[in-house]
Nucleic acid binder design. Sequence first.
DNA 1: CTCATTAAGTCAAGTGTCTTGACTTATTAC
DNA 2: GTAATAAGTCAAGACACTTGACTTAATGAG
Lengths: 403, 403
Amino acid sequence: MNDSRPIRAKSGTNHEGTSAHNRRVMIDALRINGALSRADLARATRLTKQTVSNIIEELERDGLVSSQEAVRRGRGQPSTPYRLVPEGAFAIGLQIDRHVTRAVAVDLVGSVLVRDEAGLPPGGPSNGTKVILDLVAGIRSKLAGIVQQSEKRLVGLGAAMPGPFGVAGSGDDPWMMEAWQKFPLLETLTAGTGLDVGLQNDAAAAATAERMVGAAHGLDHAVCLFVGYGIGAGLILNGELYRGANGNAGEIGMALLFADGKSTPLEHRASLASLYQHLSIDPADAGLYARINDLALRGDQSIHAWVEAAAVDLRWSIHLLETLFDPQTVILCGSAPEALVNRLIAAIGPLLPSIAERRGRTLPRLQPGMADPWSVALGAAAGPISRAFDPRFAAILKDSLQS
Amino acid sequence: MNDSRPIRAKSGTNHEGTSAHNRRVMIDALRINGALSRADLARATRLTKQTVSNIIEELERDGLVSSQEAVRRGRGQPSTPYRLVPEGAFAIGLQIDRHVTRAVAVDLVGSVLVRDEAGLPPGGPSNGTKVILDLVAGIRSKLAGIVQQSEKRLVGLGAAMPGPFGVAGSGDDPWMMEAWQKFPLLETLTAGTGLDVGLQNDAAAAATAERMVGAAHGLDHAVCLFVGYGIGAGLILNGELYRGANGNAGEIGMALLFADGKSTPLEHRASLASLYQHLSIDPADAGLYARINDLALRGDQSIHAWVEAAAVDLRWSIHLLETLFDPQTVILCGSAPEALVNRLIAAIGPLLPSIAERRGRTLPRLQPGMADPWSVALGAAAGPISRAFDPRFAAILKDSLQS
DNA sequence: CTCATTAAGTCAAGTGTCTTGACTTATTAC
DNA sequence: GTAATAAGTCAAGACACTTGACTTAATGAG
């Protein structure tokens, strides 16, 4: 009898899953609240003092937390606060963009320790792979030079590049990095570095960065609208990055706008690519960012028209993201000249009315996020850190326990 | 010293959380795959045979699963499959709509056992509360008449009504059920029934129904576009209903379309409300559904124009949902005459190109879901069942363990 | 027809992790 | 000075999953 249809089921869990979760919860609490005593942690996590003590002891042995000086807080024995040890873990983040690749080394609390970039030669993966692997190797050796045991504490390599992934029939769209997207990047990087490798699109990486060290820190529901060469949204839902069924969730750049009787993807109207086109600039130009930043700062007229038009589309995009995701806040970030992003934010307001206008609202509906060419690489690095240390459902399940 | 800023942290877990999760995983596996033997379950959940045996034994004692006849599957001892016992648990679902309220009693596998409806008098909660509580009480007593121990096995009451919830400054919008939305419905229902009460919008309820017994069964990423008096999207993300920060995620009816130089919410163009307006019909009319169903079946011209216009907007909505959520499939469902929904589906195709056009795609991009006036009540009832029995992160945490 | 093989399922002891309750330590308040 | 309060430890206990040997029951090869 050959009744071998595959059985689909979620994985069960056991003691190790419990323990792994509780460790992550401790780390998360310290990340969000800063230093906390064991008693604080016990109350906040609803675990017993004893359990917290055991876990903290273990985390301290692993070099992930350390005690600070005892604090007197009224009656009773003074408490000993513990904090995350930044050099407790590192991750490498890698951004692969159209003309350039950037890599950073980041520590447990999201500080960038090393950064470096290299131009990407035309020709896609066949020419670029070596450049990338060399860049990563350089970062690793520099990191090893400034901190102890960096290799042992390296939890993974996160890569970020423009999406979408695995989509059929867009071969002739110059806005996509077709060749790179078909390339088995994960496998190549894994083989070339020996690290655990993850891949996400650049907007998702930016959102991960915002959650670790930016405007989404400690938030469980946030949407990051990311303006770079393209435009996309990074989604933090229920405290985790949401990837969708195929890692393409949030690709708002592909959303069609109907205007003037024709449909246009948002990406063709509100992105650096569209600005370059508007200004007839070559995107491969080296001093581009500085030049545009300068134009934006000076309030240049050539940029003004584009900013105003893009702001209309972004205002609508924000409205749509609020309507569909009901986030606590929307963050406008980008891998773009900061002055340009600031001008966009100024031009966007006031926002369209939406369900985000609630009674008792505390956070602003729209907040500025990082506007820094390095934020995507930072977010790429934050991915492995988050995967290794943040509490999440998948980490509890038996089929994800490695140790 | 008054250093009492609240400490934010996720809850830890313990043995009970582990056990609760594993129970849920078993139930989920049986729901998705039908009957399975202990050995099957052990392989699928990665737990040991012994653990599975213990849990199954407990579930059997609790009346949630039962054994079927042993099956010979080649060599070795025949396996004894277990299946979910439908009458192992019940939930009541309640739909509160503009002019009518419907209630159903549903069992563990999503079969509707009792249904009843009542007209809602104008005047909102002050007049309607009693009608609703009487309706629920009637359903409960009828349920008690046809199954054993129904009260003991009642896991909760799920309510569904049009959203959005808690939004400021929409007092004069006749498309919203302002009075009901301000009313402390949860508290009233809890006090009036003594049950655990949950509340969600009608699109979310429809999605919950589709996941339990419809087109989203067994899917982890699906979006249900729900056409009723209004229009909304119910989101199944990572195998769970996504609610957003305030329970308003998916309210695509509030999304603005720009056309003819002005902006209009989708809800004003593609919803039964807009059809009623188009046909100059009184929505409170009793035989409305049958009449419209009839018109739709006959291919009536008066409906044709509306269908064609709505299809354009729905086509765009589906494109947008695919782009932002990257689901495995989109389901078009509704609390609307079935023939009308069928005409809409026919008019929507072909879909706009989107990132959903993938290599190796198996599921259709768009699937018809339930188009049944009772589907929202069914989904409302599916809510408590899902909360009580489906595997989910929150169920593992200490602060959600009741037992 | 027999017996090795295969697979389901049970038994009983073992293990890991959290919990419990008593205890110690250290500080403030009266 | 002493009671009250709070942090943190100790040691035993409880719970749920795991392990490995064993039992049961079928097939298939000789």
